[in-house]
Structure formats: C-alpha cells, structure tokens
C-alpha cells in the first residue's frame, strides 16, 4: 500500500485538490447548469467531463483521471429509475461498486471516489456534494498516484 507523506504545512495550505467529475448530460449536467442559473456557488475544484449517460463511464476513465493527477473522481448520474436511457445508471452503480473496492485495495481512500445520483433540479445537492468532497480531499491531502 502506498505511504503518503504529510506535506509541509505551507504547501498544504496553498494546495488545492483537483476533482474530475463525469456527469451525465440529462440529470447531473443539467443540475450543474441549474446551479449556474441560480448562482449557487460551490468549491472551484471540480472540472466536469460531460458524457451522454453515466453508463458510458468506462472504469478506465476513472483510473486515467487518478493517474493523470486527480485527487478525487466524482460520478454524477440520474436517480435509479430516472435514466434517460432506461437503465444505464444501474450499470454505472454496479461498476462503481466494484471499482471502489478495487481502488481501496490499491490504496486510494474511499472518499476519493464517489458516485452520487443528482437530479436535474438538484443544484443544492450538487453544491453540497462538491463542497463535502473538496473538504474531504483537503483533509486527506494530495494523492500523487502513479498508477498500476
């Protein structure tokens, strides 16, 4: 398991975690648009990669994000039963469960990989999710994962 060294205090304060977020076009990306329209502010650490359905998210995308230097990865999809493509989010859910277990086995903390169902009108939930995840990552510190 990777041993993470505590970074010096000043560096820790200047450091900002980077979250790569994969959002489905219909629910969570729409929620991020709504957050904008409603001027719901959230931590600036998240970068969204839009896909049509959360079911498109290949686990290798998540691994790639960590390998490229992400400190956390967030997947946002429609609530169970609400998928625009009938059932893509159920597949995401199963993949994410396995992936989460695998990432933990690789030494990547559980909090660094999240799957959340965020509906199109859930701007506040999006805000809470991003802010909580950013706070969690600040507590955990940089990942600096070199891949497998």
């Amino acid at each position: 398991m990777a041993v993470v060294m505590e970074p010096p205090k000043e560096a820790q304060e200047a450091w900002e975690p980077r979250i790569v977020a994969f959002f489905c076009n219909w629910c969570t990306y729409a929620a991020s648009d709504l957050a904008g329209i409603s001027r719901v502010k959230y931590a600036p650490n998240m970068r969204i990669v839009r896909v049509m359905c959360s079911g498109r998210i290949d686990p290798s995308f998540v691994l790639e994000a960590f390998r490229d230097g992400a400190d956390g990865v967030l997947i946002g999809g429609c609530n169970p039963g609400d998928c625009h493509y009938k059932e893509g989010n159920y597949k995401t859910m199963r993949r994410a469960m396995l992936l989460s277990q695998m990432l933990q086995d690789l030494g990547i903390e559980k909090e660094r990989f999240r799957l959340d169902w965020i509906c199109a009108s859930c701007a506040r939930e999006l805000q809470t999710t991003v802010n909580h995840m950013t706070a969690d990552l600040k507590r955990l510190g940089p990942l600096n994962w070199k891949g497998v």
Binding site: E16, S32, G36, R39, K41, P44, I48
Partner: peptide
C-alpha cells in the same frame, strides 16, 4: 459561464 463564472466566488480560481 454556468460551469465557472456563475458558480465560483474567487476570481483567480
């Protein structure tokens, strides 16, 4: 806009 300027407070970030 929806993804940055409308949801971010800090101008540098």
């Amino acid at each position: 806009r929806e993804g940055v300027s409308w949801v971010t407070e800090d101008k540098v970030q």
